[in-house]
Design a protein around this nucleic acid. Structure first.
Lengths: 337, 337
DNA sequence: CTGTTAGCGCGTTCAA
DNA sequence: TTGAACGCGCTAACAG
């Protein structure tokens, strides 16, 4: 690892190789019209000088950087992590590089500041396109193509990859009712987000499909976090006629349910069945392993990458909105009644 | 979310406001020598046009971007995730933005390609400085300040934040021997990495400190992954005089130990004590919760940020190498013999 | 096949 | 206090 005073430019290379800058540029960009001799010579000099073209200058000039941006509200959650993994995998296949952008923690910057921030990224010719993970506010003007993952409104004006939250929740409910459960508790997610409301709807629809009347007492408010699920679970368990199963709006909440159940001396699944939603990396490590709905978060990331790349190439998108199917993953946290 | 045909430049703003580009530039950079009237006027136009200065152009001109780079070998592991979290937190406090750079998966690009890739980031005036997470090869020439996290050699020529692997391993061993364990199995990490060797050394030193002779049979080779620890654990448990405790080189390996133990019908900690290393996000969700050595991975990220920022400001570093202390975190996977 | 030249969008002199 | 002109490092015409 050496440091040098000044970065070597294309001009330095041209001079050292005894050619013009444009020739060097051609070599750099793999144009065909360069003689074998000069090619060799220039490449040799480039290696010797350790020259690498400036991303900024190149981007500014050619309006093309081969870099994709990923804008996320945070990098704290395993959800973000899953998206990152999927995006990264897709990026690796294509000839693109990845820049992950987050504006620090969400409570520090106000949203106006954030907005300007993202726009500067997109309009700054540093990325060719970007993937935005909701719930980042995404109502700004941009020149680069954008794809939103899990947008926070039902009919986004922008290409998006969305989870089929309601259907997924119904799958969970069907599994539970097929197992014979009739008293099923539900812990909601952050109700300011669409996903949480859709899952709640799926819960209700699942109940209806099984011919079970809705009992409002069985619906408790959470916010997708572990801790937010503990008290709701206690409430549920304290009911005169407590549920035999609890459907947590996401895997994190399910962990909270596990905790509250352990605290109450209940065994899972013997005394209480638990089902989650997300199928995060972690859920398999839980004891007992969590039965959950896989919403293929990483795949959503990969698909979003494919979509922006198509947009960048100027191709038309086969479908503006990609709906990601969900799948029930049966593990060990539920049992028949 | 609107798209506009062409990005609005400083020139457009100047024209619309009836001033020159340099005046707009002054407003943008908060220079004092602008009259109140023009200031107001220009700011109004900027807002109306939704103008944001181009990152690329600005960076190219001023050689300052207020963006930090984080270069990671992968974004798959929870280790990377922990670093990312720490870096992000530190970034949020300072007036810097973060760009996370990874070159896709590691087996796709050869290392030369990677190297060029990283250098282009650093010399491309897109970041002011960078943090490199080993084991990325970091022997390249760069103009921007660099700090390495967990470098893969003992005396890095570059500022670095390093974990005290050997001491941490000794802490684990002392805890185990204090608990009365004499037969302690060890599962190594990836022995091509320095960290794994240091932890192995700590294991041996811990044995020596407790006056326990080294039994080579008790040392099994792993590679830091979950699956790599399963077979070694089986070997250990199949020994004529099996260990009463297993020290896994990292938390992932410890999960492998859990699996193999469950498979063998052994309860943790009743039949087998297990201790890990890292204190990853996950270890607390394991059942039983994993006793481990916290090496403060996120904090390493934060400190690295502080270091690069100082370097960028041209300040001297109080210490070239920051050694991160480790701490024993006692949970529920070990018990006295 | 190769060199010359004109900007890309911005910050920064230097005059006015 | 403001504006004109130059150059950052590079690519893309256009000549030769």
């Amino acid at each position: 690892m050496k440091r040098q005073r000044k970065s070597v430019t294309i001009y330095d290379v041209a001079q050292a190789a005894g050619v013009s800058v444009s020739t060097v540029s051609r070599v750099l960009n793999g144009k065909a019209d360069v003689s074998e001799d000069t090619l060799q010579q220039v490449q040799k000099v480039i290696k010797e000088l350790g020259f690498v073209s400036s991303l900024a200058a190149r981007g500014m000039r050619s309006h093309r950087t081969n870099v994709l941006g990923l804008i996320m509200p945070d990098v704290e959650s395993l959800y973000s992590f899953a998206v990152l993994r999927g995006v990264n995998q897709a990026i690796a296949q294509l000839h693109y590089d990845l820049i992950v952008y987050t504006s620090g923690d969400s409570f520090h910057n106000d949203s106006a500041e954030k907005e300007a921030y993202f726009v500067s990224l997109l309009n700054g010719n540093v990325v060719d396109g970007a993937i935005v993970v909701a719930p980042v506010a995404a109502n700004f003007t941009t020149t680069a193509p954008l794809v939103i993952i899990d947008p926070n409104n039902l009919s986004p004006e922008c290409p998006a990859v969305i989870a089929t939250n309601q259907v997924g929740a119904m799958q969970a409910m069907q599994y539970l009712t097929d197992l014979g459960h009739r008293r099923i508790g539900f812990i909601t997610g952050r109700l300011d987000l669409v996903s949480a409301n859709r899952r709640l709807q799926g819960y209700k629809d699942g109940l209806a499909a099984a011919g079970i009347p809705l009992d409002e007492q069985l619906i408790q408010i959470g916010d997708y976090s572990i801790s937010s699920a503990v008290a709701p679970t206690r409430n549920l368990l304290a009911l005169p006629d407590p549920p035999t199963a609890i459907f947590a709006s996401n895997d994190m909440s399910a962990i909270g349910v596990y905790r509250a159940a352990e605290e109450a001396g209940l065994r899972i699944p013997e005394d209480l069945s638990v089902i989650g939603f997300d199928n995060l990396h972690d859920s398999v490590y839980l004891n007992p392993a969590l039965t959950t709905i896989d919403q293929f978060i990483s795949e959503m990331g990969s698909i979003a990458v494919d979509m922006v790349v198509q947009l960048i190439k100027g191709e038309a998108l086969p479908k503006h909105i990609h709906k990601m199917p969900t799948q029930l993953v049966i593990r060990k946290s539920c049992r028949p009644i």
